[in-house]
Design a protein around this nucleic acid. Structure first.
Lengths: 356, 356
DNA sequence: GAAGAAAATGTGACCGGTCACCTACCGGCC
DNA sequence: GGCCGGTAGGTGACCGGTCACATTTTCTTC
């Protein structure tokens, strides 16, 4: 732990000495706060320029007890949805003068989750965003400790036990939207491929699907295949399973675009055309969705909006110490929208429906 | 700037008081450094547990003059390559006990570049990674100032002016690899769709392509179409342009998978089959590449390895004060590999080749 | 022209750790 | 017995800012 050899950076006091003022005046200048005459300001600025002074953010944080940093503990940001969320959060954070420390936890090394939380606790972040659909038990007590002292927002995570703010996609609405679109296209026998059901979002989308079918008031059948992952392979094998099951259906709602991609691959491999023989609707609107063949009809969820909202929730609480003293936890749902492309059509002619 | 209302966290001195030792002893315990008897350690640990003490990383950094933070200023991490790079860097950083502050600069708001650099300067990062293929002029002086005092690595960026370390994909080798694969499949008239030529990587891949053709010693023609972006739309219109040009060719090397996707879309829209009528090879190996139809033959570049290498370069320099005093800048190239799938075949029969 | 408010600036403590240095005890060896 | 080295622990300064408060100067106002 030897000191770095590089020449020490100038401090506020050295600037002060050079400008012939007190260190406090320099502080006033760099923070543009308090009374400073134009002449003095000019002198100080000149000294700053000459010494190439850059204020030390660390000292600042220590003294002001504000790190101006928000922590994000998220699922692996190789997943496009989470990457978008992080990007949205970052943009909004910067707009508000905050920095983000992003901890991206891979499925492979779940210990990182707790490690990141502890880390952020040490770094004295001003606020925390948790985007972990499957939060670990063991992390819960650390999270609780953090949430006790700083504002915390949960994204797409099930942490009712802790009284956190939360932001989420309206997954139930999304499930309903997708399903309704299929119904409106005339489908009465529908299959759905869900994501892992221990993800709140998968569960909620499935509920939305059920609701839509019920609300439609039509006699409609639902075949459900659940997966352990959201990826293409899972979609493919789920589709294969549905075909094997003998259930009859004319449209498939896959709860992610990747699942849809896998489903379509499986269908096409069996010589079925989409949407000619089978309609497919996805969820996420990943960038390539519009370039798939057929171009994928899907549900777009503005994940960057989710991230931005979470940041806003935090900064609001940080700015105003919750007016009138009450500290209510807030829940926000972000709306989704339907993106109609080419993968959904009317049901195949009766004669062409296949079985087994 | 009022103090946060939440109860102050306990400090090292309070722990010391409770354990009946000096603050320095507590410091020794939490850093597992120096001599502490087992009995004392136990007392201290108990006090820590009781007070829920968490060391203040900020105070630590200020005092030790080490932030244990590396900064990354990168292109927008919605771009999968950069996201992977960031993920690789992060993993390696954590492994070495460093944290990452990632600044993702969108094309839309290029001012962020400089803003991030300044920010990191303030935060006293221990090392910097710059992954900006198109670095702005105006950022250069800030970057120079930073690089003067802390280790800095450039990724895929052209900053010869500054004497930085660098890590990069072997783009020239990648271009050669892709092109050679086409040649080995019998193609003699090849087209390439490059990315924006002000990206060093696009330039280098093109050079690799030219080299491969030259080295093959065969009479081979190259048609070049350059784009302003790496996306699907650009690929599509570049392909259209190539078709219009009247040049004849039997294979296309697109410098990104998205460009390839667009090219294939355009070909298929014109009723041509890939690889039946035209072979296409991409670059990047994005996740969906293997699920495209046809599954895309492409060049895989281990971007996470690039990120990890950059971090290693930094931490090495931070650990050892460059043995024997000399501070040589280091350049590392990361190898790429060919991923053979279904989008490349032999050249179409002469009779089927089309023109104009 | 006196008094008070506003403007401009200075002083020293403090944030919560680490660093450098000091003291004290113990055992071994000459 | 004296000296040495290893072990265990303490003391106060310091990192580079901000905070609270004191002080001086300038401007209003009556």
């Amino acid at each position: 732990m030897k000191r770095p050899a590089s020449p020490r950076r100038p401090t506020i006091r050295e600037v002060a000495a050079r400008a012939g003022v007190s260190h406090q005046t320099v502080s006033r200048v760099i923070n543009a706060d308090g009374y400073v005459s134009d002449a003095t300001r000019a002198k100080v600025l000149q000294a700053i320029g000459h010494l190439k002074f850059v204020p030390n953010g660390i000292a600042r944080s220590l003294s002001s007890r504000r790190s101006h940093t928000l922590g994000v503990v998220s699922n692996d940001i190789s997943d496009h949805s989470f990457a978008e969320m992080a990007a949205g959060a970052e943009l909004e954070a910067r707009r508000q003068g905050f920095y983000l420390i992003i901890g991206s936890v891979e499925d492979g090394s779940p210990d990182d989750e707790e490690a990141y939380l502890r880390l952020m606790q040490q770094r004295r972040i001003d606020g925390l965003i948790v985007a972990r659909p499957r939060l670990r038990r063991s992390s819960l007590r650390v999270l609780a400790a953090i949430a006790e002292s700083i504002p915390t927002v949960a994204i797409a995570s099930r942490v009712e036990a802790l009284k956190l703010h939360s932001v989420d996609i309206d997954n139930r609405g999304g499930g309903r939207l997708a399903t309704t679109h299929l119904i409106e296209n005339g489908h009465r026998a529908i299959a759905t491929i869900t994501g892992p059901l221990d993800w709140p979002s998968a569960q909620a989308r499935l509920e939305g699907t059920r609701e839509a079918l019920r609300d439609a008031g039509v006699e409609a059948k639902l075949a459900v295949a659940s997966t352990g992952e959201w990826g293409v392979e899972a979609g493919r094998s789920a589709m294969a399973e549905l075909m094997r099951s003998g259930d009859r259906f004319t449209a498939v709602f896959a709860q992610s675009d990747l699942l849809a991609l896998g489903a379509i691959a499986e269908l096409q491999a069996r010589g079925l055309s989409v949407p000619g023989d089978m309609s497919v609707i996805g969820y996420d609107d990943i960038p390539v969705a519009r370039y798939m063949s057929p171009a994928l009809t899907t549900v777009r969820q503005p994940m960057n909006e989710v991230g931005a909202t979470a940041v806003r929730l935090l900064t609001q609480e940080l700015a105003g110490p919750s007016p009138s003293g009450r500290k209510r936890r807030r829940h926000q749902l972000v709306d989704v929208s339907l993106v109609v492309r080419q993968s959904v059509a009317g049901p195949a002619q009766a004669g062409r429906s296949r079985r087994g």
